[in-house]
Deep mutational scan, measured.
Amino acid sequence: HDTTVHINGLRIEVHGASEEILKWIEEAARRGVEAEEIKRWVEEALK
């Protein structure tokens, strides 16, 4: 999927993410993980 995830006011563009990654992002956000940190993880995961 190409999608934009909104976390604590930060937009994260996610290209080619699976449902699993999207669920993981939402879970991390709920746990209060910094949005910048999530963004870094997602970029690494999608390389």
Rank of each mutant, 00 (worst) to 15 (best):
44 E>A: 14
12 I>A: 01
30 R>L: 14
7 I>M: 02
4 T>F: 01
20 E>W: 07
29 A>G: 06
26 E>L: 06
6 H>V: 15
46 L>R: 03
25 I>L: 09
33 V>P: 01
14 V>N: 01
27 E>N: 10
30 R>M: 14
41 W>Q: 08
47 K>T: 11
4 T>S: 14
30 R>Y: 07
6 H>P: 06
45 A>L: 14
40 R>E: 07
36 E>H: 12
4 T>W: 00
20 E>F: 07
17 A>M: 09
21 I>R: 00
31 R>I: 10
13 E>P: 09
25 I>K: 00
25 I>F: 03
43 E>M: 03
36 E>C: 14
42 V>R: 00
25 I>N: 00
38 I>T: 01
37 E>V: 12
34 E>M: 11
26 E>N: 03
32 G>Q: 05
25 I>W: 01
2 D>I: 15
16 G>P: 04
43 E>R: 01
32 G>S: 04
6 H>E: 15
18 S>G: 09
25 I>Y: 02
46 L>G: 03
35 A>L: 14
41 W>N: 02
35 A>N: 06
42 V>S: 01
45 A>P: 00
8 N>V: 03
3 T>N: 13
27 E>K: 05
16 G>W: 06
4 T>I: 15
28 A>G: 01
25 I>E: 00
20 E>A: 12
26 E>Y: 08
22 L>N: 02
42 V>H: 00
43 E>T: 06
31 R>T: 11
45 A>R: 08
32 G>F: 07
38 I>F: 02
27 E>I: 06
39 K>Y: 09
27 E>S: 07
28 A>N: 03
8 N>W: 00
44 E>I: 10
4 T>H: 15
20 E>S: 09
18 S>Q: 03
31 R>E: 09
38 I>V: 04
16 G>F: 07
42 V>A: 04
14 V>T: 08
43 E>N: 03
38 I>Y: 00
36 E>Q: 11
44 E>Q: 13
46 L>H: 03
28 A>T: 02
22 L>Y: 06
34 E>C: 07
35 A>D: 05
22 L>V: 06
14 V>G: 03
21 I>S: 01
2 D>M: 15
33 V>D: 06
19 E>P: 14
26 E>P: 01
3 T>I: 14
8 N>K: 05
8 N>T: 03
28 A>L: 13
31 R>N: 13
30 R>E: 12
18 S>D: 08
24 W>R: 05
36 E>D: 11
18 S>K: 05
19 E>L: 14
15 H>W: 09
43 E>K: 03
2 D>W: 13
1 H>G: 11
30 R>S: 13
42 V>N: 00
19 E>R: 08
29 A>S: 10
42 V>T: 03
31 R>M: 13
6 H>C: 15
12 I>H: 01
5 V>S: 04
15 H>N: 12
30 R>N: 13
21 I>M: 12
6 H>N: 15
27 E>D: 14
35 A>G: 09
40 R>K: 12
2 D>T: 15
47 K>P: 06
23 K>W: 06
17 A>G: 08
33 V>C: 09
5 V>N: 07
40 R>D: 05
31 R>V: 09
9 G>E: 08
28 A>M: 14
6 H>S: 11
45 A>K: 08
46 L>V: 08
39 K>V: 14
26 E>C: 04
13 E>K: 09
10 L>P: 04
12 I>R: 00
31 R>S: 12
28 A>R: 01
7 I>E: 06
40 R>F: 08
23 K>T: 08
44 E>D: 10
29 A>P: 01
27 E>R: 06
24 W>Q: 05
32 G>C: 04
37 E>G: 03
16 G>K: 04
40 R>H: 10
5 V>P: 03
36 E>Y: 03
10 L>Q: 13
38 I>C: 02
25 I>G: 01
28 A>H: 04
38 I>L: 05
43 E>I: 05
39 K>A: 11
14 V>E: 02
47 K>M: 11
26 E>M: 08
18 S>E: 04
43 E>W: 01
35 A>C: 06
42 V>P: 00
43 E>S: 03
4 T>V: 15
2 D>Y: 09
45 A>G: 05
20 E>V: 10
4 T>G: 12
5 V>I: 15
17 A>S: 07
29 A>Y: 11
17 A>I: 07
47 K>S: 13
33 V>T: 07
14 V>M: 07
11 R>D: 15
34 E>H: 12
17 A>P: 04
32 G>V: 02
8 N>A: 08
39 K>E: 05
39 K>P: 02
39 K>Q: 13
1 H>F: 13
5 V>K: 07
26 E>W: 08
40 R>V: 04
14 V>A: 05
41 W>M: 11
20 E>H: 10
1 H>S: 14
21 I>D: 03
44 E>T: 10
38 I>E: 00
5 V>T: 04
41 W>V: 12
36 E>L: 10
46 L>C: 08
32 G>P: 01
21 I>P: 00
38 I>H: 00
46 L>K: 03
39 K>D: 02
10 L>F: 01
23 K>I: 11
19 E>S: 10
6 H>Y: 02
39 K>M: 10
39 K>W: 08
35 A>Q: 04
3 T>H: 14
46 L>S: 04
40 R>Q: 09
32 G>A: 04
13 E>D: 14
17 A>W: 06
41 W>F: 13
44 E>V: 10
18 S>N: 10
11 R>Q: 15
10 L>V: 15
19 E>K: 12
20 E>L: 10
15 H>T: 14
18 S>F: 07
34 E>N: 13
7 I>W: 00
9 G>W: 00
19 E>Y: 09
36 E>A: 12
34 E>K: 13
47 K>L: 11
23 K>H: 14
27 E>L: 06
29 A>E: 08
7 I>Y: 00
29 A>R: 09
28 A>D: 02
8 N>S: 05
29 A>N: 10
41 W>D: 01
45 A>E: 09
13 E>T: 11
12 I>K: 01
2 D>H: 15
1 H>V: 13
28 A>Y: 04
28 A>Q: 09
28 A>C: 06
3 T>V: 14
30 R>A: 14
1 H>T: 13
2 D>K: 15
22 L>P: 01
15 H>M: 11
5 V>D: 05
39 K>L: 13
7 I>H: 03
32 G>E: 04
22 L>I: 11
18 S>C: 05
35 A>E: 07
17 A>D: 05
40 R>G: 05
29 A>H: 11
19 E>F: 10
41 W>Y: 14
33 V>Y: 08
43 E>A: 03
16 G>E: 08
14 V>F: 07
21 I>N: 02
19 E>Q: 11
32 G>D: 03
12 I>P: 01
45 A>Q: 13
9 G>A: 03
21 I>W: 04
44 E>Y: 03
14 V>H: 02
47 K>R: 14
